[in-house]
């Protein structure tokens, strides 16, 4: 039995320490906004934050989480993510939507680090998040828009 701090709540989870965090989140905690796409840290669909840093949950073992705060798409709205989600709607980003939780988690972390990201910053931060529907242009536009909205409200 391990204890993890997820979306601000402490949860006991009955799982082997070698279980990937993704499956702890989805099957044990029961939050399904974090997606399974590849299982080998190649697609970013499973992106969550550990103490605010984006990680691929499919390749993060439960044992390595320790006391770090886990934030998923269900918990991220409490932060600045609302602005990002609003920009996502303005730009009508999602198509099938399956990659979008991961995209948004990566985008939120980028904007925390770089409030005014350049295109190159966006390329670097988002390169690990695949979108097979090809929403990349709108993701880029939405990140710029979210940055603008954050600056305006700052």
């Amino acid at each position: 039995m391990a204890t993890i701090l997820i979306n601000g709540q402490s949860r006991e989870v009955a799982a082997d320490p070698s279980t990937p965090l993704l499956w702890v989140i989805r099957d044990i905690v029961g939050l399904t906004g974090t997606k399974f796409g590849c299982g080998i840290a190649q697609c970013g669909a499973c992106t969550v934050h550990l103490d605010g840093v984006p990680v691929r949950a499919c390749s993060t073992l439960l044992s390595s989480v320790g006391s770090k705060a886990v934030t998923t798409i269900e918990g991220v709205a409490a932060s600045d993510a609302q602005v990002v989600q609003q920009a996502w709607i303005e730009q009508q980003v999602p198509q099938c939507g399956y990659c979008q939780s991961g995209q948004i988690m990566s985008a939120v972390a980028l904007l925390e680090q770089k409030p005014s990201p350049t295109d190159a910053d966006i390329d670097a931060a988002m390169q690990g998040n695949v979108c097979r529907c090809g929403t990349y242009l709108r993701i880029r536009a939405a990140i710029h828009r979210a940055a603008e909205m954050k600056r305006a409200s700052a």
Partner: peptide, 27 residues
């Protein structure tokens, strides 16, 4: 006429087959 699925697909609540959960279900 913004997409009817736009909000749910930006906050993790959209349900895909992968997310369907039934009592007693096995994987």
């Amino acid at each position: 006429t913004p997409r009817v699925d736009g909000v749910a697909k930006g906050n993790g609540t959209a349900i895909f087959t992968q997310d369907v959960k039934l009592p007693g279900m096995l994987t």
